[in-house]
Amino acid sequence: MTAALFAVLAVLAVTGAVLVFRCASMARATFALLASLVCVGGEVILLGLPYLGVVTVLMMVMEMVVMAVFMVAYMMNPAGLMPMSMVHNRRGALTISGVVFAGLAAGVLLAPWPGRVGTAPQDTTFQAGAALMGDQMLTMVTLGFALLATMVGATVLAVGRGRYDRFGDDLSRPRPDDPAGGGVGR
């Protein structure tokens, strides 16, 4: 049963991936990607990591919707109505990815994979949680800081207005004049 499920999900994931770059409409490409990633989430659940799988799905859904927003914001032809090919060096890309896939496949098939060592615990989520909070604390901290840095960096990059625009040339204005209203203490 799981093999069948794996096969279905695998095929769905790959077709979704291929569709992403075949669709003209950006929305369709985005949700093809969403489908593909959901399938990957499914695969992860299938591999006995329910928590990580569902979290992946949860995250992917929200991410893809945000991507859809940005897609519409920046793409010239989001609905794919006008025939436009936003592609270059197709042949070169194809050859390189083909070669990479062949290399990886060869590596996968030819490598002498060792057998399984030990068995999975009953509650994998607990195992992950314990590891992250235990001996992998450094990783957790690093990831945490990375996420914090990303949040700050992304905001700074994305926001076009600096502190001088908001608080005046010598930063003397009491209340920043932002285009959108709101803001604590107002």
Partner: peptide, 28 residues
């Protein structure tokens, strides 16, 4: 009876985001 019932509920609830946006995008 999922081990990760709460996360599942959250994921399913998150689906409504995709659903609503697509319903909005659909009619052009």
């Amino acid at each position: 009876d999922l081990e990760v019932g709460v996360v599942w509920f959250n994921a399913m609830e998150a689906l409504t985001w995709a659903g609503l946006w697509l319903a909005g995008w659909g009619p052009n």
